[in-house]
Design a binder for these strands. Sequence first.
DNA 1: ATGCCGGGCGAAGCCCGA
Length: 260
Amino acid sequence: MKIATWNVNSIKARMPNVLDWLAEATPDVVLLQEIKTVEENFPAMEIEELGYNCAVHGQKSYNGVAILSKHPLSEVSMGLAGDKNDNQARYAEAWVEAGDDSVRVASIYLPNGNPVGSEKYPYKLKWMDRLTKRASALLASEEPVVLGGDYNVIPADTDCYDPAAWANDALFKPETRAKFRTLLNLGYTEAWRTLHNETHVYSFWDYQKGAWQKDNGIRIDHLLLSPKAADRLAACEIDRAPRGKTKASDHTPVWCELRA
DNA sequence: ATGCCGGGCGAAGCCCGA
């Protein structure tokens, strides 16, 4: 079971790249973020032609998440509990029906939180508390769970090109990283880091200042595995190739392989 | 301190991202 996460920064602008990558990488499940469109305008037909089912939690212009799966999806649930006034589309969850390979997945677009002095930062921290609550409830089921997405969290100094430059940023502040650790400490395994010792390996490069060419990136796209999923973890990689293509997203896909 | 780039929206220039 190959499960990927990818912030595509607009599904409509990214369709050629997304279709190419689906055909080349052949993931079973893809967790998309920042689709930037409502469900009615999601280009489902072209994706379905490649054998995927689509579950879309859309929003006009901003945010929006989706789950693509070659296996049937059930128990599809959109939105993150805990704040009835939150209408930003940042969370989608589903059960992937695949026999012994079955797994629960969530596509997560965690708020950026900048600028730190604005209301956006407390919104981010509260959203992380809500995610922690949901993640805790999912553990109680003792199912295999993969929480994948754009976490907008740089876990450690070595996950960015210049820690000093990010010191006061919402993606890197101690409070942000502490909440991310709280999430992990529930019992989740961050798939890429648990299989890799390398430092300065990234999943996002800004469009500006030649960040991609200089490899000035940050690692903020993560796959968090419950114990039952972590026991099945066989591989986890960051596929840099899509970031180097024309009309690229500023994020590149991260995928993991779970044994049956 | 701000723009840099790129997308949405909508038809110019602003909002937003990380």
